[in-house]
Every structure is written in C-alpha cells, then in structure tokens.
Design a protein around this nucleic acid. Structure first.
Lengths: 219, 219
DNA sequence: CAGCTCGCTGGAATGTCGTTCCAATCAAGC
DNA sequence: GCTTGATTGGAACGACATTCCAGCGAGCTG
C-alpha cells in the first residue's frame, strides 16, 4: 500500500508537528517546516489533515491523552493531586499546549479531565447537586493555573536563567509606587523565591480545603 | 500640529483596534482593516505603534484598566468578589482579552490585579508568609476561569443560541460510554442548566472557604 | 515673507504564511 | 498490460505583518 517505505500517515504528521512545536514553540509549526521535515509537499499533508487547526488539536491531544491515562490509587484528595500534577507536568514539558487548552472550548480532550476530577469530587462526599459546579471550578483552576505557568515559563525561554529573570521582575516590583502597590512590593521577595509547582499544589490544597469546609465529609 | 483635523494618535489607533476586535474577534484585527477604518496607510500606524503585539497589549490594557480601577468598599470577601467579577465581566464583554491575559506573562497589567487581590488577602488575615502564594492562586483562578468562560462563549458566538448549544453538548455527554464516563454522564443535566457567572462566583466562594479553613481569622 | 526642516503620512513593495489545485505517480484489481 | 483510484509533491494564490521611501505641511529661521 505505501508508496514509499514508511509513507505518510496522520500519526507521523502529528508526531512531526509535536516535535516542531516542542523545538520552536507555537510559531514553529509551519506547513513549510512540516514539508521539509517529512520531505513531501503541502498537498500530501492536506490529504491526511483538514487544516492547521485540526493538526494543532491532534497534537494537543497526543500530549494530553497520555498524561490523563494513568489512574493513580489512594485517597480522593491524593488522586486529585496526582491527576492535576500529571496535567501540570505535561503542559510544563510542552508549553504550547497551554494556549490550545485555554483557548479551546470544552471538547474532545476535556471530558476526560472532567471525568477524572469529577470522580474524586464524588469520592470526597460533595453532594450530588453540586457535583458539576465543584468539578468545573477545579478543572478551570487546574487548566488556568497550568496555562499561566506555561506562559511565564515561555518568557524565561528554554535556556534562560530563571533566577535572573525572577530577580529582575522582583526588583521591578520593589520599585513600584509605595502608595499604590504596597502589597506587591511586600511580596516581591516571596515572588523571587517561589516554586511554580509548589505554588500550583498549594492552589489544589486550598481548593480541597474549601471543598471540605463547604461540604463536610460526614454531614 | 495635526496635519488633518483629528489626526492619528496612539489613542485613536488603540480605540479602533478595540472596536475591530469586539466586532470580529481575534482575527478581526488586521492592519488592512485598521488602515481602512482610519483612512490611512500602514506606515502611519507603525509610526505610533511598534508592532501588532504591542497594539494587542495596548488594546488589552485599555479594556482591563477601567475594570480594575474601581475599588469597592465592604468586607474583604465582598471586595474580592467585586474585583473578580469586574474582570470577569470585562472579559465576557471582550472575549479576545482572555487569550491575551492567559498567554501573556505577569506584566504591565497584572501588578494591578495582584495588588487588588492581595490587599483583600491581607485583610482576610492570611499570615504574611503565605501572602504571595494565596494571592497568586486567586489571581490564577480568576484569570484562568474567566479565560475559559470566554473560550466557551466564543463557540456560541454573538448571535448563537446558548441553550441550544449547551443542550447539544449535554446530549453528547449523555451518549458517552457509561463505564468510562459515569461522572460526566451524571452531570450532563447540570451542565445544560448552569450559569457561567454563578459558577465563577462559586469558585471564588470555594477559594474563600479554603482560605478561611487553612488560615482561621483569629488564630 | 521665503526657505528649510523634520515629524508625520500613505502607498508601494517584500517575504512568509495557510490553503487550493492539479498533473504525476504507484499499488492493486480486472 | 491496462485501468482505476488512492496518494503525492510542486506550483500558484490571496492575505497577512512588516519595511521602505517619496512626499506633504506646520512651524522655525533668517
């Protein structure tokens, strides 16, 4: 069947797209770059893929799916943390996923995330009438926070010195107007020393504490 | 000074950009559309603005700044709700802002949001060492949730029938595999009937409950 | 008042992008 | 060996952001 050994296929195209996106960021996915890497023409790619949007969606799915596949064991809170961290790490490794996930509607990829989170919400004893609300809020925090962390990581860049850039930003905060920005000035030092992953987990813990407070386990 | 009455200015360009973005979405901001609307050429625009990115940032700032300007009175929790809702409504009215806010790093516009949120965090009695973490988590939820709501609103479109699309999506959820997606199937009905703004506020309340639980007011 | 200057303008031109079109190609079936 | 239909690769198109440059005109200089 294949015209050449290892001929084109949707899977090969998506793999190449992921590699290009990882190597050069969101702007790195070009049909020209794709044709070069696959040694073919645009027409061949368009035979397997409808357009660039579908290709981006497929690439996003290829990264997110494995991250959501694992179903860890343990207490509901720990399992929720594990699911959230898996997505966080996947986005951290492929920052371009963030823009896709945050800008895309609740489709294709999201039912799985909602399902994973929702099962833990149910296990936490949240009353049935609040399932959707609580699970949605958790999903929105997980995706939103991971996306913003990826955006911050993008300014640093692959080879950038994170500590230096954080220090620069902290100095900028300390130079703000003391009357207008007392809080920002006060936390500049904490910002300089913060860890993204730790902070993300603190957000999950905050949400879990809120769930426990609003819906006590043995009401 | 002005060559024509009402000559070009950075402000007039940014205003036109906001109108174009509101009218036609993120793809509506084109230098061609801008030159048509302002009856000029690209060169004139590039004299006032460095590039499209700076123009987008300026347009975003023009929308976000007024929303963050109001400083409501009341209890810390209520003030936090008011700040969050102001940003939520601004993004709801100008959905293209979401992509800019979520994809852009913590710059220019964000210190103001962090400051507004942070002052309420301080007023809530959070210990000083946790100020940055708690405020950051809140900002990430506010921006992330608002951005995802805007993305959902974009699929509906300006003239779309929200109820119809939600119903369609709910039916899709109900048709999922019962073994793999029990939770999603169970909440399909709640999804059909949910209100975005109400759900966003529920998230704020959840976070506030978490803050109160982890940092009791009179410890 | 004449001429110069320079901030500002608008149109033409460039290179890259996504996408479309089509002639050429190859494996499989008759 | 001929046809056929699924694939391929390259050429071409329109839209885009951006750059370049020749010119305008208000205000300064004399």
């Amino acid at each position: 069947m294949p015209r050449r050994t290892e001929s084109l296929s949707r899977e090969r195209i998506v793999d190449a797209a992921v590699e290009l996106l990882d190597a050069a960021g969101e702007g790195g996915l070009t049909f020209r770059a794709l044709t070069d890497r696959l040694a073919t023409g645009p027409g061949a790619i368009y035979w397997h893929v409808a357009n660039k949007g579908e290709l981006l969606a497929a690439a996003t799915d290829a990264v997110v799916s494995p991250a959501l596949a694992a179903d860890p064991a343990g207490a509901p809170g720990d399992r929720l943390r594990a699911v959230a961290l898996a997505l966080f790490d996947a986005i951290d490794a492929h920052p371009w996923v963030a823009a896709q996930l945050a800008s895309g509607p609740w489709q294709t990829t999201d039912p799985r995330l909602l399902e994973s989170v929702g099962q833990q919400v149910r296990a936490l004893g949240v009353p049935r009438g609040r399932w959707f609300t609580v699970a949605s809020v958790l999903v929105q925090y997980i995706v939103g926070a991971a996306a913003q962390n990826a955006a911050n990581a993008r300014v640093v860049g692959p080879g950038g010195d994170r500590a230096a850039i954080l220090g620069e930003m902290a100095r900028g905060w300390e130079d703000l107007d003391p009357d207008a920005y007392p809080f920002t000035r006060a936390v500049a030092g904490q910002m300089r020393a913060h860890d993204d992953r730790e902070q993300f987990l603190a957000g999950i813990d905050l949400a879990l504490a809120g769930v426990a407070a609003l819906h006590p386990p043995r009401s």
